[in-house]
Amino acid sequence: METSRKHLEDLNEIRQIMERSTKFLSLSGWSGIFAGLFAIMGVIAAYLYLDGGNIYYDESLRMLSGDRQISPRVFLLGDAIVVLILALISAYYFSLKKAKRMGEKMWSPVMRRLLFHLAVPLVTGGLLSLVLIWQNNVNLVAPLTLIFYGIALVNAGKFTHREIIWLGMAQILTGLAAAVWQEYGLYFWGAGFGMYHIIYGTTLYLKYDRKGK
């Protein structure tokens, strides 16, 4: 009996070590919730700026430039970048906190792999969006940012909690829908970057964070 318990412990430990050495598990649910909240604030700011949605956001970018202090193109780009920075800061902050609590190192080979697989599609999509904005092809920016972000999440999925793959799939589908109904880009953007993140963050929190305390 005694030896069989030792064997069971051995097997459990092997499984844990395998998981810990291949997956970054300190991703906090709170960072998802906060990223979602910041995105929704960004969407509201854009909505108000575009006269409560009375003006299609694609048209406004070309026509309204004259009577505004800053051009809508610059405003929307700045808005998106502020949201991105706030989301990244909160992701870093909450993950660092959780990593400390779990006694896990933040900057590990797994983390580097995770970031690399996340960054390749994300940077590609980001640069492509900048090119499109520069060429006045703003219509496609909302769908493409959603699609590339979704691909990045699916790609990074094998290095962290599996739930992130579902988040990525949802972003891709929303991005495709946003490409079909381009005039509603802002709403799809709000759903993808705002609502989905909050749902995902809450799921992660309920499943892993609360239990871990």
Binding site: I14, I17, M18, S21, K105, S108, P109
Partner: peptide, 23 residues
């Protein structure tokens, strides 16, 4: 030893410090 083998069986390679921290 079991731990070292576990890490290396699922990672292409690992360095000394990573093994030390994991185990």
């Amino acid at each position: 030893r079991l731990g070292v083998m576990s890490v290396l069986s699922v990672n292409e390679q690992a360095d000394f410090n990573t093994l030390k921290e994991l185990l």
